[in-house]
Nucleic acid binder design. Sequence first.
DNA 1: TGCTCGGTGCGAACACTGTACGCATGACGG
DNA 2: CCGTCATGCGTACAGTGTTCGCACCGAGCA
Lengths: 242, 242
Amino acid sequence: MPAEMKPTESVWTRPRPRQREQLTREQIVAAAIELLDAEGVEALSMRKLGTRLNAAATSLYRHVANKDELIELVVDEIYGELAPPPATAERARWRPAVAGIAAELRAMTLRHPWIAPEIGQTGLVHVGPNAVRMTSGLLAQFEAAGFPADEKDQAAGTLMAYVIGIATTEAAYLSAIARSGRTEREWVAELRPAFDEASREHPGLREGSSAQQDTHPRRIRDDAFDYGLARVLDGLAARLDA
Amino acid sequence: MPAEMKPTESVWTRPRPRQREQLTREQIVAAAIELLDAEGVEALSMRKLGTRLNAAATSLYRHVANKDELIELVVDEIYGELAPPPATAERARWRPAVAGIAAELRAMTLRHPWIAPEIGQTGLVHVGPNAVRMTSGLLAQFEAAGFPADEKDQAAGTLMAYVIGIATTEAAYLSAIARSGRTEREWVAELRPAFDEASREHPGLREGSSAQQDTHPRRIRDDAFDYGLARVLDGLAARLDA
DNA sequence: TGCTCGGTGCGAACACTGTACGCATGACGG
DNA sequence: CCGTCATGCGTACAGTGTTCGCACCGAGCA
C-alpha cells in the first residue's frame, strides 16, 4: 500500500492503480534474460518480449534505443552475476585468484549459452560497468602477480582469449543439444556412429574420446577446461619467472 | 512491353539461347563469399545473393536446402584456404608446425572477419571436409610431439580455444571499424578520450596501451597474438617435458 | 518425329522481423 | 483548471527466410 501523496479519496475511486504499468528499463532487461534463458537467442523478438511484459512491442523503444542496445544491456547485466573481483592477493597467490575468475567466466557462459556469440562479438571492448569491473579486477591480479605494466594487458588478453574460445564452443555445443531436446549423453551416443565413420578416413581423429566413452560428458568438458587453463597459466607463470 | 501471351515468332521474342544460366552450388557459394567479404554478414540475404547471380532468390533453394546450410558450405570453403597440413615433422619440431597452423587460422579469420561468429558457433564440431582435414592435421602434430593418445585432444583443444578466442575478438573489432568507415588508426585516435575517461575510474586499466600510442595498431595486435601463442605453447611444452 | 517427364527458374504469397511516426491519454506543475 | 510532457500503442513500411505451384527447357523413350 503506497498511500504516498493524497490518501483523501478512497482507493476505489482513484484511477485504477494497475492502469499505467510503467515499464522500466530494468524490467525489460530482466524479461529479456528470462526469455533468452528459456528459448534461446533466435526467440528474442521485440514483439514477444512486449507481450511477455503485457506491453506492445513499440513501447519498449521508450526505454531502449534499439535491439542492439538492449542486448548490450543484457550482456552487462549478466556480467553482474560475477562475484566482485577478489582483493588483489599477495604476489604468490595470483594463480588461484586468476583461475577463479576464469572458472567463473566459464560458468557464467554455460548458465546463459546464448551470451557466447555476443561476448565474443565485442570481446574485451565491452564498456558496460560490470564488464569493466571484471576486466579491471583481472588486470589488477596480473599486476599484483608481477607482470610489468606493458605486459599485463597481453597476459590478461591471453587468458581471456582462452576462456572466451573454449566457453564459446562449449556454449554452442550445449545450445545445439538443447535445441535437439535430448540430453547430452543421448546426443553423444547418437552421434558416435557418424563420428566413428569420420574417424575411419582420418585415423587418429578423436581416438582419445573413444577411450572416455563411459565418463560423463560433463566431466569430460570440465577436465578439458581445467587442462587448458592449467597449461595457459603454466605458460604465464614461466614468463614470470624469467 | 510485356508481350506475354503469344510470342508468335521473331528472334527477339524467342527465349535467348543464354536463357538457362544453370546455377551451380559452387557458384552460389563463391558469390556468397564475395558478398560477405564486401558487405559483411548482415548484408547477406537470399534475395541480394540472387540478384548478384542474375537469379531470383527462390532459385537458390534448388541447390541449397536453406540459409544455414549455405553458411556451412561457405565456412568449409574458407577452411579450404588453409595450406594442406604440414607433413608431421620429427618430434622436436612440433612447435613451429603447430604455431604455423595457428597463425594461418588467425590470418584466415582476419581475411574474412564475418566468419568468426560462425566458426565459434560450431567450434570443432565442424564436419565439413576441409575443417576435418585441418583438425586432423593438428592432432597429428600433437601426436608426433609426444602427447599420449588420451591427452592430445585436450592439448589441441587448448590451442584451438586460444586461437578462436583471440581471432574472434579481433575479427569483431575489425568488423566494427569497417562498418564505421574509418581506418584503424583513426578509430583508436577517436576513441582514446572515452577510453582515458573510463581508465580514470578504474586506474590500471589499459595503461599499457597508452604507452604504445605511437605503434601501429596492426603491429600491436600481431604482438599480442604472438605473445599469447608463445605462452600457450610454453605451457604445453612444459607438460611434454614432465 | 512426337511426347512425356524430371529438373530448373521464378512470381506470388505467408509469416515474421526491427523500427519510425503520430495519436491518445494520463500524471503533474503552474 | 489547464497546458505540458512523458509514456503506451496502433499502424505502417521495408525487409527477411521459405513454401508452393506454375512455366518451361532438354533429354529419353515410343
